[in-house]
């Protein structure tokens, strides 16, 4: 009976593994590596990669700058309504991207909720690179904030209060104790958010539109090239897979590194982190 059970588990894993990896492998089989480079030299592909890189980096800086202190607050303080705040911050994770795009229009569009205020500031956001950045921030930041909260929560609070009793102010405790101890988890959340942002499609095409050289990111270019230049679409797709894979591997390494640091140095934190 137990052998049968083991067989069932093994079979399930095999099915899952095959189903999830075959499309990725097949993608690479259709693009010979030699062709990959020449297709990526295509001007449109380069432009789209440029837009993707610029907007992803800009969005990521914003996510880290705002997300880190926000996550620290949520991880170290308990207050009434904290769960509601957490739910609100995670909502974009489960929203269909097209709904996210509509929501961004409804909020920041020129006839949106904040449209007239933005216009008074001379800002018209839709169809600009800023719109791409906002779309990425909206869909990707929950990935970072979630990871960052968990990372800060796994820091032993006794270490923080010890630093406090030794005379460090709260800002110093955050910068010199909490940040370094949470670095591994923060890095893992950060890479996940970056990867999600890089692949952003639905909210971007709704809110920022699709204009080569301005708002057309790599995922939009893939969709655009499908009907005209299938090879370019495949090559761009393969490149995104490679980048995402590298990002995921980094995340895994960072997580492993954190865990081993915790088990060697701070056993109490490690036991709470799972």
């Amino acid at each position: 009976m137990s052998r049968l059970f083991a067989l069932v588990l093994g079979l399930a894993l095999t099915v899952a593994l095959l189903f999830l990896t075959i499309p990725v492998v097949a993608l690479f089989l259709r693009v010979p590596p030699a062709d990959l480079a020449s297709q990526l030299a295509d001007e449109r592909a380069l432009e789209a990669l440029g837009v993707s890189l610029r907007t992803s980096v800009a969005a990521h800086v914003l996510i880290l700058l705002v997300g880190t202190p926000a996550a620290y607050l949520l991880a170290t303080r308990s207050f009434r309504g904290r769960s509601l705040v957490l739910v609100a911050l995670e909502l974009p994770l489960v929203l269909p991207p097209a709904v996210a795009g509509l929501g961004l229009f409804a909020a920041f569009g020129r006839s949106g909720l904040l449209g007239s205020e933005l216009r008074a500031l001379g800002l018209e956001i839709p169809f600009t690179e800023l719109a791409v950045v906002l779309a990425i921030c909206f869909v990707a930041s929950p990935f970072y904030v979630r990871g960052a909260i968990a990372a800060f929560e796994s820091v032993d609070p006794q270490l923080l209060s010890a630093a406090r009793t030794l005379g460090a102010g709260p800002a110093r405790v955050f910068a010199r104790v909490a940040l370094p101890l949470a670095a591994g988890g923060l890095g893992a959340g950060s890479t996940l958010a970056f990867a999600r942002g890089l692949g952003e499609f639905g909210a971007t095409i709704m809110f920022a539109g699709n204009l080569p050289g301005r708002t057309q990111t790599a995922p939009l270019a893939i969709y655009d090239a499908l009907d005209e230049d299938f090879e370019v679409a495949l090559a761009l797709g393969a490149l995104l897979v490679a980048v995402s894979l590298a990002i995921l591997l980094t995340t895994k390494l960072l997580t492993t590194w954190t865990r081993s640091a915790q088990t060697s140095g701070f056993p109490s934190a490690a036991s709470r982190s799972s």
Partner: peptide, 21 residues
């Protein structure tokens, strides 16, 4: 003046109907 190249004609209509283009 083109700010977006849509994937189909309904995308064009949508952006105008939303009063963004």
């Amino acid at each position: 003046n083109v700010v977006s190249l849509e994937e189909d004609v309904r995308g064009v209509l949508g952006k105008v109907a939303l009063d963004e283009a």
